[in-house]
Design a protein around this nucleic acid. Sequence first.
DNA 1: TCCGGCTTTCAGCATCGCTTCACGCCACCG
DNA 2: CGGTGGCGTGAAGCGATGCTGAAAGCCGGA
Lengths: 309, 309
Amino acid sequence: MLDLSRLRTLRAVAVHGSISGAAAALGYTPSAVSQQIAKLERETRTTLLERHARGVTLTGDAEHLVAAAGQLLAVAQEAEARLEERRGRPSGTLTVASSPTAVRGLLPGALAKLTSAHPDLTVRTIEALDHACAELVAQGVADLGLAHDAELARLPVPSGLERTLIGEDPVEVCLPAAHSLAPRTVLSREDLVGVDWITPPPGAVCHDWVQLTMRGLGHEPVLAHQASEAASQLALVAAGLGVVLVGRLGRGPLPDGVVSIPLEPAPMRQVHALWRSGTGRRPAVTEALRLLLQEWRDLGYESAGRPTT
Amino acid sequence: MLDLSRLRTLRAVAVHGSISGAAAALGYTPSAVSQQIAKLERETRTTLLERHARGVTLTGDAEHLVAAAGQLLAVAQEAEARLEERRGRPSGTLTVASSPTAVRGLLPGALAKLTSAHPDLTVRTIEALDHACAELVAQGVADLGLAHDAELARLPVPSGLERTLIGEDPVEVCLPAAHSLAPRTVLSREDLVGVDWITPPPGAVCHDWVQLTMRGLGHEPVLAHQASEAASQLALVAAGLGVVLVGRLGRGPLPDGVVSIPLEPAPMRQVHALWRSGTGRRPAVTEALRLLLQEWRDLGYESAGRPTT
DNA sequence: TCCGGCTTTCAGCATCGCTTCACGCCACCG
DNA sequence: CGGTGGCGTGAAGCGATGCTGAAAGCCGGA
C-alpha cells in the first residue's frame, strides 16, 4: 500500500528538483530522503529517479505518483480540516506564511491572542516574500498566507486559493534628511523620477511597484541597492544612498537622518490573507482571520475587512 | 498527517463492527488493532470509539474519517493500478475472491498459467459465497471476483463494479440411485416439486434458485439439509436424504449411489468475473480475465466470453 | 588533475508496531 | 448471585523501521 509520508517526500523532490533541496524543505537529511525514495521504488517496483552526477530527474512513473500524491494529500488535509470543523474550535497546527512587515506588525498580537485562547492549537510562522507566501499556501506548506498587493503590482493568486482583505496601508517615501526633496510635506510620483531607489528583492510587492510605476511615467528606475530587511534599507537611506518606499505596517521608528513624506495620491498597499479553499471553514483559519482583522483595527489604521474574493 | 494504514484499520473496524473482527480480517491481533486506533485517536485528538462491555461503536468523527479513508484508499489503489498499467505487465498482488466451485474448477489452471508467466505477480485466493465475492471486490479486499448468477436468482452487483461473463454452466440434479426419479433420463422442474432439497447456505446462487423456482411453481420447497461443501452435499444425497443441484464446473466424480440427471429446459448457471471500475485496465486483471476465458474453453464447456456489462 | 556539489551506502541507535500474556469489564446463564 | 465467556486494553519483549552522521562514489567544471 502506498504510504502518504513517502509520497510527500517524493513530491518535495519534484518541487525542489533535488534530493538535498527536498531534505532541507522537510527538515531531514539528504540521506533520509534518498532512503525513502529508494524504499518507495522497491515498494512500487519502479524506477522513480534518474540519477546523474548533478542531481536527479523524475521518471514518468514518478510524475504520475506525484500527481496522485497531490490528490491524496489534498483529500487528507481536507479530512483533517473537517475533523477540526466538527470539533468547532481551533486545534492541530496552523502554519502562517507572512511577508516580513506583517510578521512584526500584525502577527505577534494576533497569534498571541490565538494561542492563549486555544491551547490545543500549535502555531508556526514562515517569513517569506509576498509571491512566495502565496506559493507556500498553494503547496500546502502553509495554511494561511499574509501578502501585500498593490495597484499596478497585483499579487498573482494561484488557483484553489481564496483571499480576503485585512486592511489597506498607505505607502510613504523615506529619504535622507539632506535630500533636496526632504523639506516637502507631500510628494507626487513625478517628483521621484530620477532618484536612486532602495528596494527589497524581486518577489516583494514594493519592488514591483517601484519598477512599474516609474516605467509608467516613462522612466526606467535606478534600482541602486537591494536589501530585504527594513532596518538595512533605512540604514542605506540614512547614509544618503537612495530612497525607499515603506508602509505604515511594521515600520519602526525612523533612524536619525531619515524623513518620511506622504505621496499624493497615496499608493495603497493592501494586506491580504490567503488560504486554500478546502480549509476555509477550518476553525483555526476563521479564528485567525477574525483576530487579524481585529488586530488591524486595534492598530488604528483605516479601512479594513472589505472582503475581496 | 493522516496515515493510510491506520485509516484502513479504522475502516475495517467500521465494516466488521468490532475490534476483534477487524483484527481477524486484517490478520492482526485485537491488541494491535486496539493500539492502532488509540494512536489514531491521539494523532487526531478525537474520540473514535465508544467502548461498551460488548464491543464498540463508532463516533461521528470516526464515521467521517471512515468516509475519508474510503476516498483515500480508492485514490491510492487507482494510482497503483495506473502504475502497473504504465509498466504494461502484471505485477504486484492480485487477490481473487471466488465461489468454491470456481476455486477448484477454474482457478487452479488459470492462476498457474498467470503466475508462471508473470513471476512479479503475487496471487491470493479467498473462497467465499457468491454474494460475498461481490462485496469483497467492492470493498477492495479482493481485486477480482468469480461468482455465479442465474436466471431468477440474479447476483446483485454493487455500484462501482464491472463484470463480464466467463461462461455458462448447465445445472443438473443429483439424486439417490434409489430415488423414484432416478431412472429418468431427463427431468422437468415440475418433477421436482415435493422433493427434499439439499442446498448450500443462503448467499449462494443455487440456494436462491431452488427457493425462487419452486415458489414460482406454487410450492414452498423443503430445504431439508444445508451444507456448503459439495462433497458433504453428495454424501447426504448418497444417504438418500434429498436431492441437490450441481453445475458441471468443479463437480468431481459422483460417489456410488448418486446419479445426475439433466433438467429440461436446462437452467444455466453463469460464471461472472467482477472487478472495480478503477482497476479494469490493470494488466493483472485483464490478463487474469483472458486466462480464465481460455481455461473455460479448454475445459470444453459451451458458450463463453460474451461480455455482459 | 583536483575540487565541489550531489547522491548513495553503511553502521549505529532510537522509535515504532507487532505479538504474547495477563487483566478488567460486563452480559448472559445456570 | 456467582461463574463464564467474549471483548477490549495494557505491559513487556523483540524484530523492523527510519532517522543521523561519516564516508565514499560520481561527474562537470576550473
